[in-house]
Design a protein around this nucleic acid. Structure first.
Length: 825
RNA sequence: GCCGAAGUGGCGGAAUGGUAGACGCGCCGGUCUCAAAAACCGGUGGGAGAAUAUCCCGUGUCAGUUCGAGUCUGACCUUCGGUACCA
């Protein structure tokens, strides 16, 4: 740390202690997890890191508290699986290859090596025998295996689609990887390209993914984000007649959630990419229409998606007929209509949709109110009316409420075959292809005669060739590797060409929790019996940024495995906790340019792992994040010093002095209350108040030591139980002091202390006395006091009498053990 | 705009509808010291007051429910996060 403040020094050599115990734990394998253990299982995971090369303080903020929680579960008697691994495929490795000439494998594995060392320095209970590194063939071969299973099940398909393209990463992206029109990785505005790509049919699961009933405890925020992302809309798909034109199609289909406004349609608008545009555009309009399409294509996604932008469009010189009232409607193309949503065509209802209203105003199209608000004056509105009302200008449906009209029209439309009720989702299928090298090769072969053929299971894995040229060409580097590309067709034995795209890395993270169960298993992605013992993950922790990517994909993945009979669970993660973001001491996001980055390696060099662990947990509620503070960590260092000194006291001489029974009772009560508090708070990830309670205990014990007021047995009990409570949060210091106080190894194989409810009870308590709800006195009373006596004592209080002062006492409220409120008036 | 979370001392933050500010940082005073640091002891929301007497004010704003509201209800304001031409 380079700041100017004074650094409090530790009284013990934390670095040596960290090393000593980390080596010992490793040597003895005390964190090795057995699959057949009679204790109840607890599977708790934190999102595995990307091996960027350096573990930063944000990683610590994710890992250290989750480790403390997992350790607490261990001490509660669970067989805890709290594994770690590396999300080792992905673009940064390849970009490093392009800029520095290092092979992605070398770059990644040397980063993994360094981060293993850094992760060990946290002192977590990771069982390194279960580590998962998903860029290794023994991992990714199962990506390929799953891919083929999904393909056989019809859940993986290849299609030509206007897909999202990042011109900088030179690859397609999934919709989920686009944020406000820019690539989530490099912030480059995205464009669209028509490509043949592989997709997973996540949309088949849209409805089930909206059902969160079997989840036990997920943050509402994540559920809301997934709900919005899936974007389920129920409505009606309805056709508008174009049978006058001499083309194959008889109608233009549109989707609407407001079929009740069908009589208010005054135009149709198609997405510029809509396939009917070409066929319907009148000759005299063709030049203008083409110009508009070209312009729309050239516009960046950001511009097209901006809601503030003026609505534009072009009349294509054709008309469609509204079958409900036989009106003829002009057909426009407009870039506010998205080709990717619904049918790519909308029925324009200016009176009841703001976008349609804006468009109609600009092109002087009629605005016809068909849902009348209760106080409607019959005039044309100044903006679209979206509220409830009565049907008007609506033929046979006149006078119905909008709700009644919606049902009646939907029924009639269905009966006459003009359309049908339909549900549309915002969710698109998961685009899995990437035109990059550093990922899992998609195990497919193209044959002139047999078409697309999956690679047979026995031939897996399709190895990623070591030699590749890294040039940002927009084509997968694998495509220029003839040795890789040219193969034989698994079906006919003739010449075949391999698929050269690789898989999105979210494939890896969709099932890594399963691999942790049996990481060395060779006959399948996981050993089914053991995996079903461990799964589902009972507690998952990680950042909220994965809400609609990893967390949605892995839910889909598990459900599809279930439907293929490979698993019997519905959800991968039962409980989810999102930790917040650790900020710099200036309360800003950490960044090199701000100079507020904290390097954990430097800090543990000075104060040890436990001080960092404790400080990160002490800052505030884990889900809220908070600012790092170089001064703040001094408080923790002081505390560690004080508890160290306290534990080292030899209590034997205490017995040479008379003890104070009241102090002994107080001390026991405080100890047992602390145990109860820590137990409850650790359970709920409330680490800050856990540590505060332990600090209070230390403060009390220091005072007791100064007074020499308790016997040695009481003292020893307090110290022992304190160390057990300290163990999950400061494992090294707790282990060292556990040894120094003459206990057997290891503190981490002890149960969490239990509290005695009777000992937590006060025998004397402070009763608060209020007059009209305002605090006026505190009186000390025996805990056994009954209501009548409590009220009497309260009214006897001199201070209370002053405030009653002749007024009438109307009521006396008594809250047992807490307060008396005298109501006067 | 919509969705989610949050607004409490100088700072990070505590408070099953019942003593607002636990715990820690910082600051102030003291002990120790030649001196400083560290350590230890004490104090520390604001105001009036000689006061460790007593009183008043105080949890974003305004209402409400209640004997009693940081906590519950309604309306707003602000900040942060997410998302957005989704028909």
């Amino acid at each position: 740390m380079t700041t100017a403040h004074r650094q409090v020094e530790l009284r013990f050599n934390a670095v040596d202690i960290d090393r000593k115990w980390q080596e010992r734990w490793e040597r003895d394998g005390i964190y090795r997890v057995s699959d057949d253990d009679p204790r109840p299982k607890w599977f708790e995971m934190t999102m595995y890191p990307y091996p960027s090369g350096d573990l930063h303080i944000g990683h610590w903020y994710a890992m250290a508290p989750s480790d403390a929680h997992a350790r607490f579960r261990r001490m509660q008697g669970y067989n805890v699986l709290h594994p770690i691994g590396f999300d080792a495929f992905g673009l940064p490795a390849e970009n490093a290859a392009i800029s520095r000439g290092t092979h992605p494998y070398e770059w990644t594995m040397s980063n993994v090596e360094n981060m293993r060392r850094q992760l060990r320095s946290i002192g977590a209970i990771y069982d390194w025998d279960r580590e998962v590194v998903c860029c290794l063939p023994e991992y990714y071969r199962w990506n390929q295996w799953f891919f083929i299973k999904l393909y056989e099940k019809g859940l993986a398909y290849r299609a030509r689609a206007p897909v999202v393209w990042c011109p900088s990463c030179q690859t397609v992206l999934a919709n989920e990887q686009v944020l406000n029109g820019v690539c989530e990785r490099c912030d480059t505005p995205i464009t669209r390209r028509d490509f043949e790509q592989w997709f997973f049919k996540i949309t088949d699961y849209a409805d089930e993914l909206l059902d969160f009933a079997s989840l036990e405890d997920w943050p509402e925020k994540i559920l809301a984000m997934q709900r919005n992302w899936i974007g389920r809309s129920a409505g009606v798909e309805i056709g508008f007649d174009i049978s006058d034109y001499n083309i194959e199609e008889r109608e233009i289909r549109t989707f609407t959630t407001r079929i009740d406004t069908i009589f208010g349609v005054t135009f149709l608008a198609l997405a510029p990419e809509h396939p009917l545009v070409e066929k319907l555009t009148a000759e005299h309009r063709r030049a203008e229409v083409q110009a508009y399409i070209d312009q729309a294509r050239a516009a960046s996604e950001i511009d097209r998606l901006s809601a503030e932008r003026e609505k534009t469009g072009v009349f294509i010189g054709a008309y469609a007929r509204n079958r409900l009232n036989n009106e003829s409607l002009p057909i426009y193309i407009a870039d506010y209509v998205l080709t990717t949503y619904g049918t790519g065509a909308v029925m324009g209802v200016p009176a009841h949709d703001q976008r349609d209203y804006d468009f109609a105003r600009k092109y002087r199209l009629p605005v016809r109110t068909v849902i009348a608000p209760i106080d409607w004056d019959g005039r044309e509105p100044a903006e679209a009316y979206l509220g409830p009302g009565f049907m008007t200008n609506s033929g046979a449906y006149e006078g119905m409420t909008d709700e009644e009209g919606m049902a009646a029209i939907a029924n009639d439309v269905e009966r006459r075959g003009w359309g049908r009720r339909a549900v549309t989702y915002r969710l698109r299928d998961w685009l899995i292809s990437r035109q990059r090298y550093w990922g899992t090769p998609i195990p497919m072969v193209y044959c002139e005669d047999c078409g697309v053929q999956p690679v047979p299971e026995a031939d897996l894995p399709v190895l990623l060739p070591e030699d590749a040229e890294f040039r940002p060409t927009g084509e997968s580097p694998l495509a220029i590797n003839d040795l890789f590309v040219n193969t034989v067709c698994p079906n006919c034995g003739g010449p075949g060409r391999r698929e050269t795209d690789t898989m999105d890395t979210f494939m890896d993270s969709s099932w890594y929790m399963l691999r942790y169960c049996t990481p060395q298993y060779g006959d399948g992605p996981y050993e089914p019996k053991i995996a079903s013992q461990w799964m589902p993950v009972q507690q998952y922790t990680g950042g909220a940024e994965h809400a609609v990517m990893h967390l949605l994909y892995s839910r889909f993945f598990i459900k599809s495995l279930r439907d293929m009979g490979l698993l019997q669970i519905d959800e991968p993660f039962l409980r989810l906790f999102n930790q917040g973001v650790i900020l710099g001491s200036d309360h800003e996001k950490m960044s090199k340019s701000r100079g507020n980055v904290v390097n954990p390696d430097d800090v543990i060099e000075q104060v040890g792992a436990d001080a960092v662990r404790c400080f990160l947990m002490f800052i505030g509620p884990w889900d809220q994040g908070g600012p790092w503070s170089d001064e703040g960590i001094n408080g923790i260092v002081r505390w560690l010093n004080r508890l160290w000194v306290m534990v080292e006291h030899d209590p034997a001489p205490l017995d040479d002095r008379p003890t104070d029974p009241a102090a002994v009772r107080d001390t026991q009560r405080i100890l047992h209350r602390t145990i109860r508090k820590c137990y409850d708070d650790l359970d709920k990830f409330k680490f800050n108040t856990t540590i505060a309670a332990l600090m209070e205990l230390v403060n009390h014990l220091s005072k007791v030591w100064n007074d020499q007021s308790v016997d040695s047995a009481t003292w020893r009990e307090c110290v022992d139980k304190f160390l057990l409570m300290l163990a999950p949060i400061a494992p090294h210091v707790a282990e060292e002091l556990w040894e120094q106080t003459g206990h057997g190894y290891s503190v981490h194989q002890q149960p969490f202390p239990a509290w005695d409810e009777e000992l937590t009870a006060e025998d004397e308590l402070t009763l608060v006395v209020q007059v009209n709800g305002r605090l006026r006195d505190r009186i000390s009373v025996p805990a056994s006091l009954d209501e009548a006596e409590a009220k009497m004592r309260a009214l006897d209080s001199q201070r209370v009498q002053t405030h009653i002062d002749g007024k009438t006492v109307r009521k006396v409220v008594y809250v047992p053990g807490r307060l008396v409120n005298v109501v006067v008036g």
